[in-house]
Amino acid sequence: MSSRALALRWSCAVAVLVAAATTALASDPWGLFPESASLEADRVDGLTYLILWITGITLVGVQVCMLWFLWAYRRKDGVRAKHTHGNHTVEMVWTVAPAAILVFLALYQMGLWKDLKSSKPGDNENAVAVRIYAKQFEWMFRYPGPDAQFDTADDIFSNKTLVVPVNHPVNAELRAMDVIHSFYLPNMRFKQDAVPGLHGRIWFRPNKLSIDRKPLRSSRGAEVKVDYFDIVCAELCGSQHTTMAAKLYVVSDDEFAKWQKGDEVTLASGTKIPRPSRTDALQSPYDFIWSTWAMQDDLKVVAPPKWHKGGPFYPDYKGDEE
């Protein structure tokens, strides 16, 4: 091998080692993700980087190898291609090696997936219970109130604002009222569709106060201070889907207790978190349905899709005035 090729090879190796070392030190060394704000997020990031390394090395290997072949074996006068139909040994190698890697990856991630989606926080973990409703195009959050029971008179409601205490698991039930939505917390790497007809059990473990969120950069390069984490609707849900944002405030235990009592909570950034409301203060028919969700099976109104009002297939349906 020529000395230049050797030098190249060594410098590549050193570059890879340096990169590996930086990876080991921070959970998102290349800043690929939104800032992490939950225990789960760091584990997901770690897995992503592992896959990134494996696929990245494969990718570079394949592309470099291809370019090398293209250069080395370009058509030259008088040189005839090698007549070969294959080679059993190398084919075994490149079947078994990727198979082993893929099986390893599959097994390696199972534990994390189980923790994320099948082992909900235990009773001793002081989890916060909340019920999340999604409808076109907003999020609504219901807390059980002082009696710790849902669907009772002391439940409290909060619109477009989810408030949770830091370092407590959030144990939530996810419901959709009209179409599919998806509850997405980029900072927690959390996502679960809210599906009409299903009651999803979800949880995540916020470990960072939202007031401590690092400033963002605007598209013009200015610093933007944001004191909440984003709640995103990640599943297309209609014409205003893009507007279906909500705010997640991760606050201290004290602030959370105050907020639940209905007192005003002002964050260090000056933001006043909107106060929750009590069930009995809710007026609109929507809120009525929400507060009596358990009884909805008794509602007998059968209506066609909007555009089909008064069609031949719904003789009993009088239609609503428009």
Binding site: Q136, P196, S284, I289, L299, V301, V302, A303
Partner: peptide, 19 residues
């Protein structure tokens, strides 16, 4: 379509559109 869908963005106009 499951039971109990509620559809419509304006609650006063269309409170319980149920499938």
């Amino acid at each position: 379509i499951p039971k109990g869908l509620v559809q419509g963005t304006d609650p006063d106009l269309n409170p319980y559109q149920m499938a």
